[in-house]
Design a protein around this nucleic acid. Sequence first.
DNA 1: TCTCCTTGTGGAATCGGTTTCATAAAATAT
DNA 2: ATATTTTATGAAACCGATTCCACAAGGAGA
Lengths: 331, 331
Amino acid sequence: MPGTIKEVAERAGVSITTVSRVINGNPKVRQDTRERVYEVIKELGYVPSAIARGLTLGRTHTIGLILPEIADGFFSQVIRGADEAAVRQNFHLLVSTFHSHRSDEELSFRLLGEGRVDGLILMDPTLGDDFLMEFHRSSFPIVVLCKKIKYTNCKYVVIDDLQGAYQAVVHLIKHGYKRIATIRGPLDNYDAFQRLAGYKSALKDYNIKLNPEYIVDGNFQWEGGESAMHILLDLVQPPDAVFAANDPMAIGAMEAVKKRGLSIPKDMAIIGFDDIELARLVTPPLTTVHLPMYELGAMAVESITGMLKGKSTRRKNILKTGLVIRKSCGC
Amino acid sequence: MPGTIKEVAERAGVSITTVSRVINGNPKVRQDTRERVYEVIKELGYVPSAIARGLTLGRTHTIGLILPEIADGFFSQVIRGADEAAVRQNFHLLVSTFHSHRSDEELSFRLLGEGRVDGLILMDPTLGDDFLMEFHRSSFPIVVLCKKIKYTNCKYVVIDDLQGAYQAVVHLIKHGYKRIATIRGPLDNYDAFQRLAGYKSALKDYNIKLNPEYIVDGNFQWEGGESAMHILLDLVQPPDAVFAANDPMAIGAMEAVKKRGLSIPKDMAIIGFDDIELARLVTPPLTTVHLPMYELGAMAVESITGMLKGKSTRRKNILKTGLVIRKSCGC
DNA sequence: TCTCCTTGTGGAATCGGTTTCATAAAATAT
DNA sequence: ATATTTTATGAAACCGATTCCACAAGGAGA
């Protein structure tokens, strides 16, 4: 409680209006008055109350960030990106998760309805469009992560999985591998679908015939990758390179290769997807597609602050992935 | 903008005082009045403004959490613990990091001075006592993590490293290992010091003579652990078990053992400290001391909310570590 | 019947700022 | 010297709640 504007005003012998002007850099204050006020402010260690300000201005300079989980390698990078972007814009970040014991609605309700935040960043694969619809009526700045929103005009930021997969497979092609297989994710998963599409697209662009035997099902888990790789190795003509739709499967696949006494990347090149922490720790270090989670958080914040400043930001933002070249591809 | 209390009052044909009473569960409202107000509230989708409330009550129901880094396995667990505790207490969490381009002071200043938060949780090994002193004058609830505070009466929560190390070494002793060595951390590190003390204490309590050769320097890094283990293995009488002061060193040590063609835990048992994610992924899975980061965050929040509610909470809180028994100890 | 409590309700001050509008003083134009 | 504009300043309304205090109505007690 470092004093109020009133105290400053009295002490400086001016009105609170003048003090307010000084604080906000309003030029219509005489130089000597300004200096006197500044002096008192310093003397009292006065800091204007963000709450009072928020009440009059209707702005809290705070953005809500709601994630499915916090203690997760990916999500925590989203937070970091959001935090740094928020700081750049002089905003604060209210972080929370969807907790089982309170509904999505309740949480978002409180944050927005109570006016705690100026905007909301939501990341939840299970989020329904209708739920978002309801919110959007309130004309609150809302940005949804990793999910395309159909029916409302909420903004969203997604990661271009297709391009990432494409790039990975092209990398393998340019390495000279001829028989490139893929271990795909579960069919109902949108990301898995996109990554498979990227694989197919790359082969097509380089005139490599698609061999159905080279597309094996995985479950996005370690074990799925391992058994999928065994299937591939048992083929009459096994592939010489594999693109796994995520890192755990890639690492499982590596394990299978090793168990057969084969070497990576000499006998079998492998590229994963996600760039989990473990990827650079396995032997050989896994070449993989990096997900720009940091940028995702940062862009979401910038999208929100942009909206708040009245800039017309684009409704859809697509972030490119990046290929992280390590050893498992043969580089 | 789900309406204001004024609109509700008008619509319900009562004064805002009455509406306020209804919202806050004040019993001095006739039943039928209450129902009428509730109806209007529902109809309008009215949610009271937390900002306005904050202004009058001087409480924001928000706690600031400032960490050195966010995208880190440990810190993100602190956030999660804090988040869940905050939700339980109906509080919100404002998360940020000390950013290089703004001073500690500036950040804490803003959060507290501006009245954005009701209390602050600080985690920063470099935090100076004098810095905290200055803040404590303001009688704000502040809790410092993982750092003992001498000169002020700030609360703090620390992890009992000594006890953790003690427990780990005792576990090795009870396994029947006779020659237990340790790879310690850098001497100037308080945690490293505590862990070494725990090691010594355990040996002493079990009447095992301390062999100076069995205390090798490490640097808390992977490589340091590896070279330290080589030193141990080159001894005339190498140890049969090693307690490494953190997991990276333990994993480096495992690597050294493997390179010599020895097996873990048959030829050499190893216990680490920290329980990093990688610990359960190495082969064999590393037995290690788990740091209760989740509890740290949760306890800090509870300490703050306790203070806010006027409970006299203890100034110092010590959290116990827990031994995570996996395979590297021989279990 | 007249006072004295309850009980339910509302008016108005308050929290700490911002902002509109009025006004006094100073500067410029006539 | 007077009229007009500009500049610096302050009074007061407002943001959306809470809360103290006043007050009217109804019931109990004398």
